[in-house]
Design a protein around this nucleic acid. Structure first.
Lengths: 115, 115
DNA sequence: ATCTTTTGCATAAGACTCTTATGTATCCAA
DNA sequence: TTGGATACATAAGAGTCTTATGCAAAAGAT
């Protein structure tokens, strides 16, 4: 479903969350993992992901490691200590945000227990 | 609280949802309503809201009505028929988005029933 | 063998949405 | 009479994404 505009702003948090779970991942792997987790509903584009990874690295939240696989290279990322703390903060914020959205969505009673 | 970057993209959907509930509202009222619903956690800025309202109107989803209150004016908005349909679509998308976020957030078992 | 798809990285132009700053003006309470 | 709340609006800039493009190796298909 074509990545609704709601997706905006959540990409880097998703990346951090996945790296919290998996310890190290490379870019392409992240796009596939998100596709898998959301049953194809959310597709992270490379044009969004790579700049985002670079920024997270520049901000000191991720550290990169190049690994050669045969003749190709992969760039693995993992969380730094700072990144681990930031991830916790962002996940807390994301959960708060979802709660706020639900407060707004559930002002009527058509869906009492939320989605 | 400081409107996290996650907020991006959801403003117009929030506006549409509120107008679905209230039949007609004016800009300032919308900012106050959101503040109230989220216990002050989400603050819509006027610099974001008014251009958004103008766009929704230009897109034919809202129709405006000027009302004089004493010496002041209020610009009330309400959903058009097209706007009602679009609202249903966007709310469906927002719920789907939240579900997708929860799929990603709940890949571990520290919080089995979600937020 | 050759062609296409998948894997895997990257950047750039442009669109879109928001923040921050600014402007105007009325109403109400201290 | 002064400040805060109400009420509209626009503009510059920042941030994040889409879309397009480029390069190249590996794998699968014909």
């Amino acid at each position: 479903m074509k990545n609704s505009p709601l997706y905006k702003g959540s990409l880097s948090t998703i990346v951090l969350k996945l790296l919290e779970e998996n310890s190290r991942m490379y870019g392409y792997e992240i796009t596939q993992k998100v596709k898998e987790l959301t049953a194809g509903e959310l597709n992270i584009t490379e044009g969004a992901l790579y700049p985002s990874l670079h920024k997270l690295e520049a901000d000191g939240l991720l550290q990169a490691e190049m690994v050669h696989i045969g003749n190709r290279m992969r760039k693995y990322y993992r969380l730094t200590e700072t990144g681990k703390k930031e991830t916790a903060d962002r996940l807390y914020e994301l959960k708060a945000f979802i709660e706020q959205m639900q407060l707004i969505l559930n002002t009527n009673l058509t869906n009492p227990q939320g989605i």
